[in-house]
Design a protein around this nucleic acid. Structure first.
Length: 823
DNA sequence: ATGCCTCGAGTTCA
DNA sequence: CTCGAGGCAT
């Protein structure tokens, strides 16, 4: 039973939490809750106090702006208090704000100055006779801290006012912030050379200003924007806010270019949307925009409420960060068996979507963050889309939690989880026997870039595997329409158990899904019966289930049929061999040309392909050495998978089909390229080497150490067999490799191209194919090796990087022209 | 050995 | 998209 607590209790609770947050925020620079949550608490308290005036204590946090300053810096009493702003989160609230002012001032149209609200630290700068004499933080609004020495290190802040006409006493208010790029650069350096890694630009700015040693502040990349004035004496200012900003600019202060004068609610909201769209591209973080009534006369007339002016308001963006609690930490098993911890979160809105999951990457990451079940964590959706856990809020940790540890066994199949030496990931040792891995293997096999079986989604794979209909990828090609139909009907039922239960009595023990389908269709007789079987069936389903499901099943059968025709590269990729992605699969296909050849090659020969080294070669060999995998390939071929692009091996293979190269590729301890060459010169072939007595090796010129290592290596039967097998495979290859060099090079031979942004006329994949057809290599990231970058609409960081490195950039038109010319 | 440069693998949500 | 790690050039 939960009932809302009495208002008095709730108010006390809110006050306690707000005070606590204030203290952490201001004194420790370590926020315990996000700004959004803080705002929510304050608003709730305000509402409560408004509804129950008897609860409005004079010392309520709603009457004050922040916590008392810490003792480290001298206090500075602000001659004009630095107030905070009321917040608006919706268009509605902005309209209310405008209406209030319009009514009170009795004006038909209002003019506002609108500006971005930087996520930094508010400060006040005092100038006397044009000289910067003191700077202070906001503190609690009435009293701040003297951070003059630190502020003097910021280049944006003038030591003397420029221009003329400034008042003899002038306090300038503004925001100290850290630009994103500067923040990133700082952290990069800090990580590299040791130094304080900053949590985010805002904390970076705040922390930097509160250094006792100004040298430290000087080293931090801080910036400043002016947005207003405090005390002004002995002179005068323009009579509008925008006019004052223009003056401040003249006097040497940076003022944001984004400040605009706008009219009425529509003007404000238009400005808000414009800044919102530009937000990600801005060089600094902002958490909203601020609207100020532009003319001072109007401001004076509106006056203040307890903690904020009534002539200004902050219109906040939806929060990018939110806190929530970790309900569980579960393990997901990937295709390769990688065990990834995932935080199951209490659903929370972050930047427009509801987040319920966030990856924790691996055990080390969990340990670094010390995330525990029950913890309150701060979740962020960074520049991209993927939510991440930023940090734990330790003060909200419930009692009795334990540090999280990786389970010892796979939660899906119960096999042991193992970790390779030095690796970060734990893997399930169950391999194909693990249903999770099998499902992912099948998903991968069917994926668009692999065999491209359209219509076989995760859900269906899940059910097919769970039902035991599919035990391996080859089973996909044995699927019949009726099996799929049954599957679909069960899946679509609201209560599959009920449906299965209804079918069960009609089945003989051991009967398969075909019989199940027949039983199902026979229930209640024909299509009409479905309607009466409301039990477990959704309404849409009661309408014409059989027809819809049948069409789905037939489409899927057709898609499977369609996927039978494929290429070697796709097929190799689809097999899901560790370390063999698209690019490696393509290389294998290009160099060897034929599946039957590839599948019997011993691992050292894969190293002949550029970009394939020992690790990847061994992974391919390991896959092929397993009889079960060879059987899968056989079955796929038997069941009609056709590889359409078989061709002879690349002539480029010819170099290196000799004993010396083989000996190097075998990675025999102490046998370097030099030793391998000596051995190859001394022995006619691998068999001769194998038969050689130890002294013959020494005679060949090998130092004793190498000779002994080689003998020891050859004594292992498996090694000797591998040597012979490899030599034999080399001989075979030699016979297959055509003599003359291949066809003429394409116009883009040897060029590396990077695609970025959205192309209008074709997809990125199409562009990639076309470029590759002309001999280009299409890479994913820009480096100095990149020949040129093709930039479509909304190109981002890759285009920027190209600019940095001075790399040629093509627009889409140029690409089109080039493709047309060389088609 | 060291430091790029790529590739592979994993992930979220509408 | 980002991170980790494999491959390769220096």
């Amino acid at each position: 039973m939960t009932s809302s607590p009495a208002p008095a209790e709730r108010a006390a609770d809110l006050r306690r939490r707000i005070e606590d947050a204030n203290r952490r925020y201001h004194e420790l620079d370590a926020p315990s809750i996000t700004d959004a949550e803080y705002d929510a608490l304050v608003r709730e308290l305000e509402a409560l106090e408004a509804a129950h005036p008897e609860l409005a204590a004079p010392d309520s946090p709603t009457r004050r702006v922040g916590a008392a300053p810490s003792a480290r810096f001298a206090p500075v009493v602000h001659a004009v208090p630095m107030l905070s702003l009321g917040n608006a989160f919706s268009d509605e609230e902005v309209a209310d704000f405008v209406r209030r002012i319009a009514e009170q001032l009795d004006r038909p149209e209002l003019v506002f100055s609108a500006e971005p609200k930087l996520d930094g630290l508010a400060i006040s700068l005092r100038y006397e006779d044009g000289a910067f004499v003191r700077g202070a933080t906001r503190g609690d609004g009435a009293t701040g801290e003297d951070v003059t020495a630190n502020l003097r290190t910021i280049a944006d802040i003038p030591q003397r006012l420029a221009g003329r006409g400034w008042p003899p006493v002038l306090e300038v208010r503004g925001e100290v912030y850290m630009a994103r790029a500067a923040f990133e650069r700082w952290n990069e350096q800090a990580r590299l050379h040791g130094g304080k890694v900053l949590a985010n630009p805002r904390n970076g700015a705040a922390g930097s200003l509160r250094q006792l040693d100004p040298q430290v502040t000087a080293s931090r990349p801080l910036s400043f924007y002016a947005y207003g004035v405090g005390q002004v004496e002995g002179g005068s200012l323009p009579d509008t806010h925008s006019g004052t900003l223009a003056k401040l600019r003249e006097w040497g202060f940076p003022v944001s270019d984004l400040v605009q004068v706008v009219r009425g609610t529509d003007g404000l909201l238009g400005y808000y949307r414009g800044i919102g769209e530009a937000r990600d591209g801005l060089p600094f973080d902002i958490d909203g925009v601020v609207y100020k009534l532009d003319d001072y006369a109007g401001q004076r007339e509106m006056g203040f409420v307890a903690r904020a002016p009534r002539w200004a308001i902050a219109h906040k963006f939806p929060a990018q960060e939110q806190s929530t609690t970790v309900e569980a930490i579960e393990i997901q098993i990937g295709r390769t068996g990688a065990a990834t911890p995932v935080a199951r979160l209490k659903p929370v809105h972050v930047a427009g979507v509801v987040v319920t999951n966030a990856t924790l990457h691996n055990a080390d990451h969990v340990a670094r963050l010390d995330v525990r079940v029950g913890d309150t964590v701060i979740v962020r959706r960074a520049g991209d889309v993927i939510p991440e856990v930023v940090q734990v809020v330790p003060e909200h940790r419930p009692d009795g939690t334990q540090p999280w540890t990786m389970p010892s066994h796979c939660p899906v199949c119960g096999s042991e989880l193992v970790r390779e030496e030095g690796a970060a990931v734990w893997r399930c040792s169950g391999e194909a026997a693990c249903p999770a891995q099998l499902k992912e293997t099948i998903n991968h096999f069917a994926s668009r870039r692999a065999m491209d079986i359209d219509g076989l989604g995760d859900k269906y794979v899940e059910t097919l595997v769970d039902a035991g209909i599919i035990r391996g990828i080859a089973d996909l090609y044995g699927l019949g329409r009726d099996q799929l139909l049954y599957l679909k009907l069960v899946l679509d039922a609201e209560s599959p158990e009920a449906l299965a239960g209804a079918v069960q009595p009609h089945l003989q023990p051991g009967e398969g899904s075909g019989a199940a389908l027949a039983a199902l269709l026979a229930l209640d007789g024909g299509d009409e019966g479905w309607r009466t079987r409301a039990l477990g069936l959704p309404i849409a389903f009661a309408w014409n289930p059989k027809k819809i499901a049948t069409r789905w099943a037939e489409n899927l059968v057709a898609a499977i049929e369609h996927s039978r025709d494929t290429t070697l590269a796709r097929f190799l990729y689809a097999l899901g061999i560790q370390h063999v992605g698209e690019s490696t699969a393509k290389a294998l296909a290009q160099w060897f040309g034929d599946l039957q050849l590839v599948r019997r090659l011993p691992w050292p020969l894969f190293k002949r392909v550029p970009d394939i080294g020992g690790e990847v070669a061994r992974a391919i060999g390991h896959f092929l050495d397993q009889p079960a995998n060879q059987e899968v390939i056989d079955r796929l071929l038997e069941r009609g998978v056709r590889i359409g692009d078989a061709h002879p091996p690349s002539p480029k293979l010819r170099e290196g089909l000799d004993l010396a190269t083989l000996l190097v590729d075998l990675e025999i301890p102490k046998v370097t390229a030099v030793r391998a060459a000596q051995l190859a010169a001394a022995f006619a072939d691998a068999q001769a080497l194998l038969d050689a007595p130890v002294h013959a090796l020494v005679t060949a010129g090998l130092p004793a150490e190498s000779a002994n290592a080689l003998v020891a290596w050859l004594e292992q039967e498996a090694n000797a067999a591998l040597l012979l097998r490899s030599a034999q495979a080399q001989a075979e290859l030699l016979a297959l490799v055509p003599h003359q060099a291949g066809q003429g090079a394409g116009p883009l031979e040897g060029k590396t191209v990077v695609l970025t942004g959205t192309l209008a006329a074709m997809s990125r994949d199409e562009a990639k194919e076309k470029l590759e057809a002309l001999g280009a290599k299409v890479a994913g990231s820009v480096s100095k090796k990149t020949s040129f970058v093709v930039a479509g609409e909304a190109a981002g960081s890759k285009l920027a990087k190209a600019g940095e490195l001075g790399i040629e950039v093509w627009d889409e038109a140029r690409l089109q022209a080039f493709l047309a010319e060389h088609a």
